[in-house]
Computed example of a mutant assay.
Amino acid sequence: MTDSAVAEDGLAEVGAVIDECFQDAAARLGDLAGFGAVWEETRRAADGGKLLRPRLLLAAHRAFDAGSPEDAIRVAAALELLHLAFLLHDDVIDRDVLRRGAPNLIARRRDAARAMGADEAEALRYGDSCAILAGDVLLSAAHRLIAELDAPAPRRRALWGVLSDAIGAAAVGEHADVLLGLQGGADEEAVLRTMEHKTARYSFSAPLRMGAILGGADATAVETLGVVGTTVGIAFQVRDDVLGVFGDPQHTGKSALSDLREGKITLLVAHAAADPSWQSASALFGDPGLDERGAAVLRAAIERSGGLARAEAAISGLVAEARATLLLSALPAALIDDLEHIIASAAERVR
């Protein structure tokens, strides 16, 4: 999503709340055994994000505008802290040592352990441990922000319900993603359901629903936004997976090798797997030493199998479904316009 897809109002305030949370946690945690350095590196890793979830939540809140803007800002910050926690845990699960093209927290703490004389295995274990523990603190901070809201009890309970659903879905989806990798393949339905649980619910559906709840929307509007958010979120994930194989890293900021090296089971692979052209190249899939020449062989197999065309068709279908839901809804016109921009970016992101 481009920065102009939804308004910027409130993002500076969200950033200030996030900074306050890091400072408050630092004061409470102290620096036992050097944990202060771990927390400071965690704070630095939070810089440079697109604040997608806060943008969506604030857009939904503004559209109804019957609740406290301060509460909306704090819940938006909570969702960003939740996202940062999931990124840290995801890096451990995926054995990643890079984030946004730079060494992540795991890599930096691994290197610190090496400098203290630890061997490679112990240094990496320390880096993983730091990411898990810092992620746990961020999850606690996100819960605390919502617990401290000065909002009516029914509204707070509704927010807790959405948050709990999002966290549970993300855990189930992450497990499904790992299991798909172990199994070495999946059908389209399994991949799409994994995307829904792992990413779409907490990144798109939850922010829209929570913003609407905070804005005083009725149950029908909240439910509609949940459906639209989930559908658009899956479309975004399929688009990300396409860019992760066929994108130009100079334009996308994403590696076009890491998913193939990891052996990530995406919709591209799910569609390609049964085709002979993929089977003849599949020995390269999941090779951690895969180079650009090998990646070109896999890309060609995906295209010949129809995997790329079918992934693009899935994006188009999801986009059409989301737009149809919007057209049939009674959502505020300004919010529909914001969501149309977001839907368009899912359909049209360049390679």
Rank of each mutant, 00 (worst) to 15 (best):
A5T: 00
V17W: 00
A25C: 10
G36Q: 03
V38G: 04
A45Y: 00
R55N: 07
L57V: 09
A63Y: 09
S68Q: 06
L82P: 01
V92K: 09
I93Q: 15
D94S: 12
L98S: 13
G101N: 10
P103W: 08
R110I: 00
Y126L: 15
I132T: 14
L133N: 10
A134F: 02
G135M: 08
G135P: 02
L145K: 06
I146A: 12
A147V: 05
A153W: 06
L163C: 05
D165L: 14
A166K: 11
D177I: 04
L180D: 09
T194R: 15
K198V: 02
S203L: 12
P207C: 13
G211F: 02
L214R: 09
D218T: 01
T220E: 15
T220D: 14
A221D: 14
V222D: 13
E223G: 08
T224Y: 05
T231V: 13
D240A: 04
D240F: 02
F246L: 13
G247T: 03
S255M: 07
T266F: 11
L267R: 12
L267Y: 11
P276F: 07
S277W: 04
S280F: 02
L290A: 09
D291Q: 08
R304G: 05
E312P: 01
I315S: 14
P332T: 05
A333M: 08
D338S: 13
H341Y: 01
